[in-house]
Amino acid sequence: MCILCGEFVTRIHWTEKHAEDKARASIDAGAKDENRRNRRRERVRRAAVTNEVLRHYGLRVSDWSGTKYVLRDGKGRSTLVQDLGSLWPAAQKLAGRPLDPLDPALQAALRGASNGAAPATGS
């Protein structure tokens, strides 16, 4: 249960399953703390790599207190999403165009970014 929005979260998205299970299953206090830190690190890392993709659409995502993610666009609009499963439809809505990893324009932007060129934003 999310105490802020009252949402009953029963499903853990497959991308987060491993870290969530480990964080919840630890019994030893030391291991529990370490697994919780790993979980937070993984969430931050997930947001960072997802931002590499979202940059092309003028969007940005960040971890929100370890429970959700905040998705923002350049106009100041924002929305809360639970996981990557709900992020993509929300991102498409904010961007106003389809998001697709097979899109050549996105791929060109990613190649440009990894080659050190100025990343393309929007199109």
Binding site: T15, R45, T50, G85, W88, D100
Partner: peptide, 17 residues
């Protein structure tokens, strides 16, 4: 592969296709 990044790619692919 970076598991978090692969998850980003695959979840995006499954969303779109």
């Amino acid at each position: 592969v970076d598991w978090a990044a692969f998850g980003t790619w695959l979840s995006m692919l499954l969303y779109a296709r």
